[in-house]
Amino acid sequence: MIDITLEVNGASKTLSVEPRRLLADVLRHEFGMSGVHIGCAHGACGCCTVHLDGTPRLSCLTFAVQCDGASIRTVESLGGSEADHVLQQAFKSEHGLQCGYCTPGFLMTLAPFVEEMVAQKRMPEEGEIREAMSGNICRCTGYQGIVAAVRKAVTVGLDAGAA
């Protein structure tokens, strides 16, 4: 067992973990972040994507012991239980989800992409959006609604910047 300190969604906690424990499991079981969904557990589906020190990372391909001192954000940090983040609202209005299992991973992958596009003041091409989400699998939507949601979130961001 190794002692590590993780800062998860603003709260720090020191705990003792076996080296073999995946970050995804530690976030779910020790921090109660059930929004971290585990799909394939081998890096193919993207469901478990979280932000590690600000950038997306697959928490099923990361050992918690590697993250000592790191700052982690899960989907719970986006819009809370109201899900009022602009991208979450866009997923809702554009039918970007059906069963919702893959949604936390899509949101954590795409939220920084939306922010980057808004910062660059431009609407991405469809190909760019599909490339950005190519590491996430959705079995319900056929992706059309997710692409539309990204466009809508970028539009809202651009309009807010222009106002």
């Binding site: 993207g46 994507t49 997306p56 990372r57 697959l58 992958t109 590491g135 996430n136």
Partner: peptide, 9 residues
């Protein structure tokens, strides 16, 4: 090579 998250790491 892989997807964006994989290429970053």
């Amino acid at each position: 090579i892989g997807h964006p998250t994989i290429r970053r790491n």
